[in-house]
C-alpha cells in the first residue's frame, strides 16, 4: 500500500495524518480526562459523560449566537467566555446528578452504569426537543480560521493548534490540581482508603461530589473545544462514549499519564490507518488491537500499584 507514493509524499501524508490524529487526540484527552477522574478515581461508570460534553458544546453554540446578535464587537473573544460558562454549567449539573443519583449507588457500580445510561437518554431527548434533531455548528472567529503552511504539502489548521494548546493547558492544570493541591491529595486519599480518609477528618461525601463535578466540568470544556472541529447533534456524545471508555481502561484506569498515553496511541494509529484503509476498517482494527491488548493485560498500560 506504500508503493504508490514517493518518499516525500509519504512523509507529508504521515505528517498531515499525524496532525489530524493530534486533533482527535486532543478531544480524546479532554473527554477521557474527565472520565478518568470519575471512573479511575471514584470507580463510577458515567455513561452520560458524552451528553455532558454535548451540553458544553450546546452552551458554546448559544453563547456564540448571543455574541453575534448582541455583542458583535466582542465576537472574537466569545470562545473564552463560552468555555468558562460551559465548565461551570456542566459541573453544576454534575454535582446535581451526584447528589440525586450517583451517591446512592456507590456500592453498586453496574447499576450506576444503567442509571447513567437512562440519564443520557433523557438528556439526548432534551437536546432534541430544545435544539432540534439536526446538527448545529458554530461560526468561528476570524483569527481561528485558516492554516499555517509548513511546507508545500503540509498545512496546519489554526483551530487545531488552538484545541491542542487548550488541551495542554487543561492537562497541566489538572495535574497541578490533583497532585500539587490540598484538594487533590484529599481526593487521592479518599480513593486509596475511604475509611481512613474519613477518620483523619476529610469530608468524603463533599470530596466525591466535587470530584464528580470536576470530571463533568472538564467534559463541558471538551464539548466547547469539540465545536471548533465538528458540528454538534443530540446523539454525538453517544458516538464517543465507548471509545473514551476504552481510552481510559487501556491507559490503566487510575493513571492520568496512562490516559494521555493511550489517547495518543489510539488516535494516532486510527488517523494514520484511516488514510490507507477505509475509515471503518481503521476503527475496527484499532479497537480490535486495543481489546486484544486489554485481554492480555487487563489492568491497562499504566497500572497503579495499590493495596486493596
Amino acid at each position: 500500500m506504500f508503493a504508490d507514493y514517493t518518499t516525500t509524499e509519504l512523509v507529508s501524508i504521515f505528517a498531515m495524518q499525524g496532525f489530524a490524529g493530534l486533533i482527535l487526540f486532543s478531544v480524546f484527552v479532554l473527554m477521557a480526562l474527565g472520565l478518568a477522574i470519575i471512573f479511575g478515581q471514584m470507580g463510577v461508570i458515567n455513561m452520560a459523560h458524552g451528553e455532558f460534553m454535548i451540553l458544553g458544546a450546546y452552551i458554546t453554540y448559544i453563547i456564540s449566537n448571543l455574541f453575534s446578535s448582541y455583542l458583535p464587537g466582542l465576537f472574537d473573544l466569545y470562545f473564552f467566555l463560552a468555555m468558562i460558562v460551559a465548565f461551570f454549567a456542566t459541573a453544576a449539573l454534575g454535582a446535581l446528578v451526584e447528589w440525586g443519583m450517583i451517591r446512592h449507588l456507590y456500592r453498586r457500580p453496574l447499576d450506576t452504569l444503567l442509571a447513567t445510561w437512562g440519564l443520557s437518554l433523557i438528556l439526548q431527548q432534551i437536546y432534541r426537543s430544545v435544539f432540534g434533531a439536526r446538527e448545529v455548528g458554530v461560526s468561528l472567529p476570524d483569527w481561528l480560521m485558516g492554516s499555517v503552511p509548513l511546507s508545500d504539502m503540509i498545512e496546519i489548521p489554526i483551530n487545531g493548534l488552538f484545541v491542542m494548546g487548550l488541551t495542554i493547558i487543561i492537562s497541566v492544570s489538572i495535574y497541578l490540581l490533583m497532585f500539587r493541591s490540598r484538594w487533590g491529595s484529599q481526593v487521592r486519599a479518599v480513593v486509596q482508603n475511604r475509611p481512613m480518609a474519613a477518620a483523619v477528618g476529610i469530608n468524603t461525601e463533599k470530596t466525591d461530589r466535587r470530584t464528580f463535578a470536576l470530571g463533568c466540568g472538564i467534559a463541558g470544556i471538551a464539548g466547547s473545544a469539540f465545536t471548533m472541529i465538528g458540528s454538534t447533534g443530540p446523539t454525538a456524545g453517544q458516538l464517543y462514549i465507548v471509545d473514551t471508555f476504552l481510552v481510559v481502561v487501556f491507559g490503566g484506569a487510575q493513571s492520568l499519564v496512562g490516559t494521555i498515553a493511550s489517547a495518543f496511541t489510539i488516535s494516532q494509529s486510527q488517523s494514520t490507518m484511516e488514510f490507507f484503509l477505509s475509515g471503518s476498517m481503521a476503527k475496527v482494527l484499532t479497537l480490535l488491537v486495543v481489546v486484544g491488548i486489554l485481554m492480555l493485560r487487563p489492568q491497562g498500560l499504566f497500572a497503579l500499584k495499590m493495596r486493596h
Partner: peptide, 14 residues
C-alpha cells in the same frame, strides 16, 4: 418515549 425509557432505567435501578 426516550424520557420514559430514561426514567425507567433510573427508576428501576434506584
Amino acid at each position: 418515549w426516550l424520557f420514559a425509557m430514561g426514567a425507567l432505567f433510573i427508576g428501576v435501578v434506584m
